[in-house]
Structure formats: structure tokens, C-alpha cells
Design a protein around this nucleic acid. Sequence first.
DNA 1: AATGAATGAGAGTTCATTCAT
DNA 2: CATGAATGAACTCTCATTCAT
Lengths: 216, 216, 216, 216
Amino acid sequence: MSSSAAPPSVRRVASERIVLPDAMATPDTRGRILEAALGLFAERGYAGTSIRDIAGAVGIQSATLYGHFPSKEHILAELAQAGHEAHRRRLADAMAGAGADPVDQLAALVRAHVLFHTEFAMLAIVANAELEALSPELVAGSIRPRSETERLFTGTIDRGIELGRFSTPDAWLAAAAIGGMGLRVASWFGPGARMTADAVADTYVEFALRILGASR
Amino acid sequence: MSSSAAPPSVRRVASERIVLPDAMATPDTRGRILEAALGLFAERGYAGTSIRDIAGAVGIQSATLYGHFPSKEHILAELAQAGHEAHRRRLADAMAGAGADPVDQLAALVRAHVLFHTEFAMLAIVANAELEALSPELVAGSIRPRSETERLFTGTIDRGIELGRFSTPDAWLAAAAIGGMGLRVASWFGPGARMTADAVADTYVEFALRILGASR
Amino acid sequence: MSSSAAPPSVRRVASERIVLPDAMATPDTRGRILEAALGLFAERGYAGTSIRDIAGAVGIQSATLYGHFPSKEHILAELAQAGHEAHRRRLADAMAGAGADPVDQLAALVRAHVLFHTEFAMLAIVANAELEALSPELVAGSIRPRSETERLFTGTIDRGIELGRFSTPDAWLAAAAIGGMGLRVASWFGPGARMTADAVADTYVEFALRILGASR
Amino acid sequence: MSSSAAPPSVRRVASERIVLPDAMATPDTRGRILEAALGLFAERGYAGTSIRDIAGAVGIQSATLYGHFPSKEHILAELAQAGHEAHRRRLADAMAGAGADPVDQLAALVRAHVLFHTEFAMLAIVANAELEALSPELVAGSIRPRSETERLFTGTIDRGIELGRFSTPDAWLAAAAIGGMGLRVASWFGPGARMTADAVADTYVEFALRILGASR
DNA sequence: AATGAATGAGAGTTCATTCAT
DNA sequence: CATGAATGAACTCTCATTCAT
């Protein structure tokens, strides 16, 4: 079903760099399994990747995988949770360093959001597109940080509106739009992009502030 | 690999309506296969759906499928092409009825773009998320209309900039952002949404015009 | 784990004839699967027999098995149920043709019991030794006829005692002893036996009546 | 294949006590391996038990097993041989203390036979039901004591017939029946039994003497 | 147009066993 | 003595697909 070697003519992710959060990026077998799985899941999807594909990419037997993870699903769960957790932490750190002005905060959030999706493009794709393959128990670890991340966005926008710094037809829709446009960056940003990640982030911050009618 | 009956805790698409373009939505077996496949591909992904799953949803034997389609891949190819083609046509029709002003044109495009993603949510998800599973020959039919759709957006934006109606840091990025936020609507818009598709479309038009700094 | 070709030095069953109840002994693929499975389960046990062993003995691919049975366990369940059901029917028929005297009835039961274990030695071994491998749902079909068979024995013995025809220290133990000695016949009766099945049956009837202290 | 945790609805052995012959029941790792293996083999069978199941029950790694036994098969071989050897010794000791009368000797043999199957139920099940899993070299250690045990029974019966103390249609069949009914005790005797092991033994002695038409 | 039976390949997972530490 | 990591083979079962009917 999977495993076909022919290069797909349409890619799910333009980036070619497999980037794991620091804590996971260990040089031991476990880390190499996560790395290989991330690259394959991002390229072919979870269901389209076999346990033997992963093992082959690592250079081990498929049975060896089971000494490190109890199932294929657990590998995905760990990647997805790490992705959502790293995303959450990035945004939380950005907020923490942004002062009290909702405009500054929102700008910092969008910047962090976009940069995360350029830097961890594969992780973002996998964490978002493959969650439905996880059982309720295993998906919980991803849902938690994801919900908190959403609250960071909506909370900041709500506060900005209360303080009269934002003016937008619908706060929730604005959050959805800003989130959605940033998420999409993970699909197309890659080595062929004509601009740096920083430039993309700066521009998306401008877009977001315009969507929110920010008064500066 | 697929076939699990337990309700997934995270859905790929909030909509529960399986909607095919009119031309495909025939009551014969062929149409019912496409309908069933669309629902399953949207829910579990192409690789996560078996030919038996589709046949089971239609109420036929899997062998019967091969009297209507030469392969599983051809079913996806037909759905993807129809999705991209219907999308292109919607945008082209919107343009055609929008007069000569790039602001009006862009508004019409965004409106049509968003409405398409609310109305054909499953088709949009499948056509966008599963393209990489298609071989180069079969993906071509989807690439063509998709490219034309992109040109509608970028062409209109470029013209608006030339005419001084738009003011935006980066035309391509603006198109990517507007496209991305609209695409994402297909994931969350559904029966639980607190607003009508029209209201979403109106608001996203406003967002898009803000992103473009449209002078009205 | 299984599949080793070396002939075991100790056999679970001396008989070399694979005998299915008439209703199952069809010449189609389904019947041939049951026949092959019976022979292998009797020889190597259920857990010691692989699905490929069975398929190989039939001369088909292992995948083909799944067109006829939903799982390996279902094959065992069908064999076990058929074994217990055939056993029950043999004893019930014997009772029906035995008149009203508990002595005659018990003699008929033991005769049928022993003859069943000589004729269907493999089925008896499998139905008795491998029941614990079946899940609660699948084992139910075997438990039912087995319980009824037990009642035939204990009921007849109890009635014989009431009527003063039997005299035995413990009715339940007598039933267990008579059942156990007959069951064991399936293990050793085979082509090398120095006596006919009929002769064994006659002798075991005599043993049983002695155990019961039958007054003749 | 094994390892399922759901309680089986049909048990191979009613007893819940794992009892090893004194010489094997050491508190060191080797003894604990034998103990765990006995319990698992009795419950799920040899082929249905994995080396990891045994290690898990002991609380060690499966690799550690290989410091004590050269293979899984050797564990079974040791248990089986110990079972047959203990059985043989019990019967031999019984004979030694029984005087010269074949009736007394046979009674002592049956008593010992039954008591062994109540006391060492698991060992008896394993030693009898799993012999066919052993290679010719490893099975030899079990065959030897088993043959001698058989000779104790048949020799005593033959002598009793010669001396006119027994009167039975077929000596060999009588031995098979007596052996078979005792063997079966290991399957059903357990904590739920409504009688003591002694009572069972006494009754089975009576049954055996009746089968043999013993003149007392 | 539809089917039931069959297939070869491959899915995820477990097997008994080895070995360096 | 015990382990954690690794292995190659085998496990049950599902895959997309074919074909005669």
C-alpha cells in the first residue's frame, strides 16, 4: 500500500529538514526512530507509512522498534504530543516576553506561531494532520497543550478588544483565520522559499494586526 | 489498519455532510461509490481507507468496485480533480460576476473560496490533503485547475496593487495567507458552528481586504 | 515455533484417520480447511499450528482461509462444537434405542461413548484439549452440548441408583471415572490396536457396569 | 498468540496450586522459573506460553532465563521428566509398602496414582499433554519412568490374574481404563471439589478393584 | 452489473534466542 | 547473575486486485 519509491509529484511539506524538539533529538536508537518516523509521517502520512519503512530508514529490524515503543501508534502519539507541547511552549515564552500591551502580545504570538511552523514544519504537519489516527487515550496528551495554545490566542484577542486596541467583526473567527494562515506556512515554507522565515513572520504579524484592526 | 469502529476523538472534518459536485452525485452505483469514498477518505484519509471499507459503505462487494473504477487510486483521482475543478469554477464564476474593480473581484473570490470550503468541506479536505498519494499521471488533472485558481487570486491581487487599490507588504504572501485561512474553514465548519456560512464568508472577505489594505 | 517437520516421538493421538462428522466433511475448500485443521490441531495442538500450516496442508494461500473463516479461533470453535455436538447426538441416539432399564441405558451410553472416541479420535482430542483456547463467546457453542452429554450420564446413573439397579460409593465419581476412561481411548486407539473398536466398547461397558455394581 | 489476560471460560486444570516435586522447589531463580513455567504450561499449554510470559511471571528479563536453561524446550523437558519420575517413585514406594497380595498392591498403586494426580495436578497435565512438543532426545527422560510406571500396573494385574485374584475380560484394557480414569482426576480436582483427595482415592481404589473383579 | 473465491504481498506484532555489558 | 538491545523468522490478519461465473 505504501512503500512505493516513485517520488510524489505533490508534497505534503516543502521542507526537507527533519527537526525534532531538542529533548527528543537524541542520537540513540530511540531518537533515530522518532526522527525517521517524523520524516516519513510528514511525507506519506501515518497510515501510508509502514513499521518496516521506519525501521528501514533507521537501519534496524522492525522488531527492534518494539523494544523502544509498544506500538506504531505510540510513536505517532509521542511526536504529536511533542509537537503540540513545543508549539505551546514557544507561544507561552513569546507571551511572557512581550509586555502588557495586547498588540505587542499578539504580535509576539503570531511571530512565534509562524516561526514554529517554518522551523518545525514536519512536526506541525504531523501533529495536526494525523491526530485522528490516535485512540482517545493516546490523543489526550496532544489535546491538552493544543487547547492551552488556543486560549493564548483567543485570550489575547479578547483582552485587546476589551481594551479597545482591537476592532474586528468576530474575535473567534479572527483567531481561526490567524491560526489557519500560520498553520498553512508549514506546507509551503521550505528551501525553495523566496524569503526568510523572519520575513514571513514579520509580514504575517502585519496581516494579523490588520485583521484585528489594531490601533498602533 | 483501518476499519476501527470506535469514534475518533479528533476529527479531520467537522462537517457530517457528504457533498459531491452535481455532475458526480448520481444515484447509480458509480455515484454511490464516489460518495462513500469521499466520506471515508475525509474521515480516515486515503491510506487509512480500504477498498473493502468503501464497498461495505455502498453495500456491494469490493470486486464490484473494479467494474466502475480501474483502481482505488482512480477513485481518489476523480474526487480530487472534481474538487479542484469545482473550486476553480466557483471562483471563475465569482470573478465573472464581479465587475472590473479588483476590490470587488477579490471580495467575490474570497466569498466564493470560503463558501466552497463550507459547502464542500469533505471534498476540499480530500482534494488538498491526499494529493500526494496520487501518481504523477493521475495528479495532473488536479494540478491544472488548482494552478488556475491560484492565478485568479494572485492575478487579482497583482492588478489591485498596480491600480493602487491594494497596499500589502508582499503580494504572494497575502495570497498564501488568504488562501490558507479559507482552506482551514473546511476543517472546523460544521453543524456545531455558531454562525452561518454566509457570515463566515462576509467576515473573511473583510479580513482579506484588511490584509490587502484595500481602499474602499 | 511450530512447523517443524521432525516426527514427534510421542503422539497426542494414535489414530491416523482424520474423520469429520458427515455434515462438515464437504469436498469444497471450506471442508478441506476443517479437515486439515483437525489433523494438525490433533497432532500439534491449536497454539502449535499456524494458519500457514493449515493453508499449506490444503494447498491454498493463508489469505484464502479468511474468505471461509473470520479467524483461526473460529476454525477451532467450529471443530470443537461439531465434536461435542456429534458426541451428544451419539449418546442421545443410544439412549433413545436402549429401552427403559438404566442398566441397558448405561451400557448403550458407554458403548456409544467409547465408539465415538475410537471413530472420531482426533475430533475428541481437539474438542477436549483445546477448549481453553477459545474466547467465552466462541466456547459457548461447545459448552452447551457438553453439559447435556454429562447430564445423560449422571441422570442415568442417578436413576439406576434410585431403582436399586446400581450400587456405587459415589455417583458423581463413578460418572467421572467412566467418562475419563472412555475419553482416554481417543489417545491410544489406532491402527496398531490389538483389538477392534467393538471389542473395546464391549469391555468398557463391562467395566462401567462393574464400577456401578450393576445387578443384572 | 498467548498473553491474553481475559479469564478463560474453560480451564485445563481446576487446581490453582503450582506444586513442584520437593527437589525442584528451590527458592532460587531456577526454581522460580520452573514454578512459573509449570503454572503457565498447565494453563495455556506449552506452545501457548511464551518465554516472555514465564520471565514476566518470575519478574526477570527473558534473557535471564537463558542463564538457567538452554532453551524453552529444556524447561518443559525438565518439568515433564520430573513429573513422570515423581509419579514413578510414588507408585514404586506404594508397591514397596503393600505386601505380597496383588489386591493390596493394586489398591496401593491406584491410591498413589490418584493422590499424585490430585497433589501434582498441574505437573501431571503438563507431563502428559505436552510430551509431543519435545524432541526425541529430550523426551527420552520422560519415556523411561513412564514405561516403568506402566509396567508396575500391568505387572501387578497380570500377577493377580495368574494367582486367580483378578478376573477381568482384558488385562491391558483394564490397566488402560484404570490409568485413564486416574489421569483425568488432574483435570477436575481442585479447590471446588466436594470431596477430599483421600475420599477420591478410596473410591477409585474400589472402582479399580471392581473393574478387575478382585476377590477379597 | 455483480459476485465469491482466490491470490501474492505486505500490514503490525511477537517469537525464541544471542550478545556485549 | 542479570540485563537491555538487537535480531531474523514467524505470527495472525488485511491489503488491492483478478477472474471465472
